[in-house]
Design a protein around this nucleic acid. Sequence first.
DNA 1: TAATAAAGTGTAAAAATAACACTAAAAGTA
DNA 2: TACTTTTAGTGTTATTTTTACACTTTATTA
Lengths: 232, 232
Amino acid sequence: MTQSLHYKKYAKNYVAIDSIIFGFDDGKLKLLLIKRKFEPCMGQWSLMGGFVGENESLDEAAYRILEDLTGLSKVYLEQLYTYGDVERDSEARVISVAYYALIKINDYDCELGRKHGAEWFAIDDVPPLVFDHRKMVDRAMSRLKRKTIIQPIGFELLPEKFTIPQLQKLYEAIHQKDLDKRNFRKKILSMGVMQKLDEKETHTSKRGAFLYKFDKDKYDYLMSNGNMFDFV
Amino acid sequence: MTQSLHYKKYAKNYVAIDSIIFGFDDGKLKLLLIKRKFEPCMGQWSLMGGFVGENESLDEAAYRILEDLTGLSKVYLEQLYTYGDVERDSEARVISVAYYALIKINDYDCELGRKHGAEWFAIDDVPPLVFDHRKMVDRAMSRLKRKTIIQPIGFELLPEKFTIPQLQKLYEAIHQKDLDKRNFRKKILSMGVMQKLDEKETHTSKRGAFLYKFDKDKYDYLMSNGNMFDFV
DNA sequence: TAATAAAGTGTAAAAATAACACTAAAAGTA
DNA sequence: TACTTTTAGTGTTATTTTTACACTTTATTA
């Protein structure tokens, strides 16, 4: 696209993306952070980010940056909020569009991560972060809490096959409170989007728990008929 | 702020604000739109917008632009979403941060509005809009629906003193469905944030309805003690 | 074969929501 | 002045949703 005739009197700005990347492992909700390898704030912990290119949309930039770090291309990614305080970046005026991603932690490419100096941190053990990244994390956390109540995006953090106790632990980690397992099971099954498999997961218990899959077709069907996903 | 040393290899972009401005009048939810007085798309209906200056934050830019059009400075304004498709503006690559505002329609400065070619449109009678502004309106509508359930921002659209039937009509307009007046009254009063006055409003009915004010102190107190505002 | 550890199951009380119809007040009119 | 009109205001019951709560099952390991 050529230079603008009518807009040329206006200022232009650097526009960046920052991504809050959530994972779930070991019963804990985790964040993927990188140690900055460039100035300003080199060596400090930071969200993964990058600048928006001239010929990519914001969503495209966010996917590109996420894939650079994790090797993953088909993940849940949602725009969160845009941060534009004049002094938010110590180097220049940078407007940052924050996204949050939910990834299946086992699919993540550790080798790529190592190259970027990336590490996983439990959500309540996050180190100090550069600029306003802490505010971004807090906003992502509260969005995730709200969103997992009204949309079945929690599944994005689990392997394709998972047990009900695993799913419950995930919800407990996100909402930071214990849930009653009978009520949990009743509610999640009553929504009719859990597809029970004939296999069991036998690592975490002697008895073993049945594996389930999220039935996306059924979910889409229910939604299109006006049914709401609604969960605590 | 001076030019950046470390970021200079990256592209810069025009960053704009667009505002979805809601009002409530005559039992209807309305939008304030302007007829564009400049290219591109001169003469077409559009949201009020403007470019972000070098020394103002996004919020500051949004307030400035809103005040330019309405003369109002203390209004409810909330960031909605950022639109960044490469071709969204036909003139140049412009990234637009959308905000939505709730204003008391009687406080609005009509003279200023006329200067901008502004007009109010009922929400289900909005004309075709430039660029992706229709998408912005739709997103604002669904945000407003959700938000008025969990936060008492509906009051921002009414005069300081209002009656319960007025408030009910507002909620009906926002949620596009009729509500039972007994259940509505019960619920809104039970939240304990309505301050009953000794005055009546006598224009819309012979009997007259008592006026109320939203008790912000009480609301803040309840919220700080963990109470939730929660409404259909 | 006994101990262990997590999976799995049902019911009853409490709270929230939804449905529903008449009376009260004041103005305008015959 | 009494009758009509119009909107404000009021309680109760049925239904649904949510919460609270304890024992049995299954397979492994000691």
